[in-house]
């Protein structure tokens, strides 16, 4: 499988009928009208389900409180920006937002770096400890937060990192890096080793080869890694609620829980906050989405 890392979307040569069809059943890519309707119908319904909940929250965020709380179904009712104004100017939302951006960006950058070097070493070198490390990466996926949270808390306390953002960055790296290294290893496997050999004949050491030759070819997989690490950090709740103690250090995931008092949830503010929280994740998604399929291709194939 020589998956070249061009960023152009892959177009399988499916629908090119070479000779007039000798069979009387419809050829691939030239299907009956009923089939087309069925296909598009299913995809449209699926897309609507996929975006429906998001769209409803977005619509609700522009409604005034009484309209959100009413049972009447309306798509748009007295559109207002009041919910956004409240969230942005009357709460600690901007602080939490900044904290989340810092944590997520650091996790993403360090995460990409660590998983890329590790994935490359796992893919190219048969060093003692390679297979155990691969197994360990799989097993770490099974560790429940509940077992790790107390000892990690103790370690962070010893290091004096409780209630600081680096504590979260480190904790999130332990969640994201094993999977990402695994995924990148799969992708590096699909890049021909002849490239490494050529580079080493040209006098590149292993680090230079990795950085100058292989890394640029692995852009799709790097994009997926970035997306994955960012999202991990952006949406995590358990560690954030255990390690962060003061309002000025909360991340969004934890801070927003404050809008949910037990009985009288402030739904209209929550919807606006939800939209604001989703926007940065959406931007990262837009950058990565072109690469998602090709980046994960090789990643999923072999352990």
């Amino acid at each position: 499988m020589t998956q070249m890392a061009t960023s152009a979307p892959v177009t399988p040569a499916a629908a090119v009928p070479v000779s007039p069809a000798p069979l009387n059943r419809p050829r691939r890519g030239r299907r009956s009208v009923g089939m087309s309707v069925l296909l598009h119908g299913t995809l449209i319904v699926a897309s609507l389900i996929a975006i429906g909940p998001i769209a409803w929250v977005v619509l609700s965020s522009f409604k005034p409180g009484y309209a959100v709380q009413s049972t009447e179904i309306t798509l748009v009712k007295d559109p207002t920006l009041a919910n956004y104004e409240y969230v942005l100017f009357e709460t600690s939302f901007p602080t939490w937002f900044l904290n989340s951006v810092i944590v997520a960006a650091l996790t993403m950058l360090i995460g990409i770096f660590c998983s890329a070097t590790t994935g490359y070493a796992l893919s190219r070198f048969n060093f003692p400890g390679r297979r155990p490390l691969m197994m360990v990466f799989l097993v770490t996926q099974m560790f429940p937060v509940a077992i790790l949270i107390v000892p990690i808390y103790t370690i962070m306390a010893t290091l004096g990192l409780i209630n600081t953002l680096p504590a979260l960055v480190i904790a999130y790296l332990t969640i994201a890096v094993p999977f990402c290294a695994w995924m990148l290893k799969g992708y590096f496997d699909s890049i021909p080793t002849s490239l490494d050999e050529a580079a080493s004949l040209d006098g590149c050491g292993p680090f230079r080869t990795f950085y100058r030759v292989i890394l640029p070819l692995a852009r799709p997989a790097i994009a997926v890694t970035g997306f994955y690490t960012f999202l991990t950090a952006w949406g995590e709740v358990a560690y954030a609620s255990a390690f962060m103690q003061t309002d000025d250090k909360f991340t969004l995931a934890y801070g927003l829980q404050q809008f949910v008092p037990q009985f009288n949830a402030q739904w209209e503010y929550l919807t606006a906050a939800a939209v604001l929280v989703t926007i940065p994740a959406g931007i990262v998604f837009l950058f990565a989405q072109k690469h998602l399929v090709s980046g994960l291709t090789a990643g999923g194939t072999k352990g």
Partner: peptide, 26 residues
């Protein structure tokens, strides 16, 4: 193998401190 080890050492160290020690401790 030093170059391979150098590439994995940061991850291994962090995982040892933050996953394996907590696991055994747990």
């Amino acid at each position: 193998h030093w170059s391979a080890w150098a590439m994995v050492v940061p991850v291994v160290l962090v995982m040892a401190v933050l996953i394996f020690y907590p696991l055994i401790n747990g």
